[in-house]
């Protein structure tokens, strides 16, 4: 139990959110490593071996090396964070994550002052992650954040959902959660974290740069080239669920707007 055992009472930015049902969160996933259908990850992720698990932290850090997952957990404070989750495909849910602040892990590794960005990499193991046997994307999946985004208190590494260990289809044993960005930024099943001074490549940007930018902040005013981002369909409410308006920075504007002051968000989408 990496979830319930160590939950702290604090639930930041939870506001009045009602979490989606456990089945909705764990049966409706985009995790192309296991197939492109929403139901594929729940169907195929059981093949994934998550024990033992090691995260390599390297690049511009004082303490580079391989960090065993259990060692990381023993040093972190796990708390519950109930966040909105907004997919770039214009659907959304609310997830009660359990996890720790990414900043705490970065502090453990000792980020050097020259570092400006954090790059992340998902496990590449096509014999278990059967979606990787096909070129849906350029494997392994990679993502990245600016260092100030990574250090933001809302940015967490999730290890659980609803107080249970995070299911494999949701990115076990360790995934990123950046609640003000589209879901694909929140990279799953992380095996490498690299501190760098250059903006790192990101998978969807490499695949279709015109549609997916480095920042990918939730923004109702900036359309995806193929659909509007002004509203979203909450998942789990059945056939006649009403669309709801999408909130700037997915409702975390007060907390994160300062990170992007003076930036043209239509250009830096």
């Amino acid at each position: 139990g990496l979830g319930l055992a160590a939950i702290a009472p604090k639930a930041q930015a939870a506001a009045d959110l009602t979490p989606s049902e456990y089945d909705v969160i764990t049966q409706y996933n985009n995790f192309y490593e296991f197939g492109t259908d929403k139901g594929d990850p729940a169907k195929h992720a059981h093949r994934l071996t998550t024990k033992p698990w090691t995260v390599t932290i390297d690049g511009m850090v004082d303490n580079p090396g391989d960090y065993a997952f259990d060692d990381i957990i023993s040093k972190m404070t796990i708390e519950e964070r109930i966040y909105r989750f907004r997919c770039v495909e214009a659907w959304s849910m609310v997830v009660p994550w359990n996890g720790f602040e990414l900043k705490d892990l970065l502090d453990l590794a000792g980020v050097q002052s020259s570092a400006k960005y954090v790059a992340f990499e998902t496990l590449y193991r096509p014999e278990e992650m059967i979606g990787q046997q096909r070129p849906f994307l350029d494997w392994p999946y990679v993502e990245g954040l600016r260092l100030d985004e990574a250090n933001h208190p809302l940015t967490i590494m999730a290890t659980g959902i609803y107080g249970k260990d995070i299911p494999k289809q949701n990115g076990a044993p360790l995934r990123l959660v950046v609640p003000w960005k589209y879901g694909f930024k929140s990279i799953k099943s992380i095996v490498r974290i690299t501190l760098t001074d250059k903006e790192p490549p990101t998978s969807w940007n490499k695949a279709i740069a015109s549609e997916y930018g480095f920042y990918s902040n939730v923004n109702p005013e900036v359309s995806h080239p193929r659909w509007s981002q002004a509203s979203e369909r909450p998942i789990g409410g059945g056939l006649f669920t009403k669309r709801i308006p999408t909130l700037m920075f997915n409702g975390y504007e007060d907390e994160v707007a300062g990170l992007y002051e003076g930036m043209d968000l239509a250009k830096n989408f």
Binding site: V24, Q27, Y28, K38, R233, I235, G238
Partner: peptide
């Protein structure tokens, strides 16, 4: 099936 849950988590897209 859409009304009774037989189309999965997202019956709108499924239909």
């Amino acid at each position: 099936n859409g009304l009774t849950g037989g189309l999965g988590i997202d019956p709108v897209k499924a239909m």
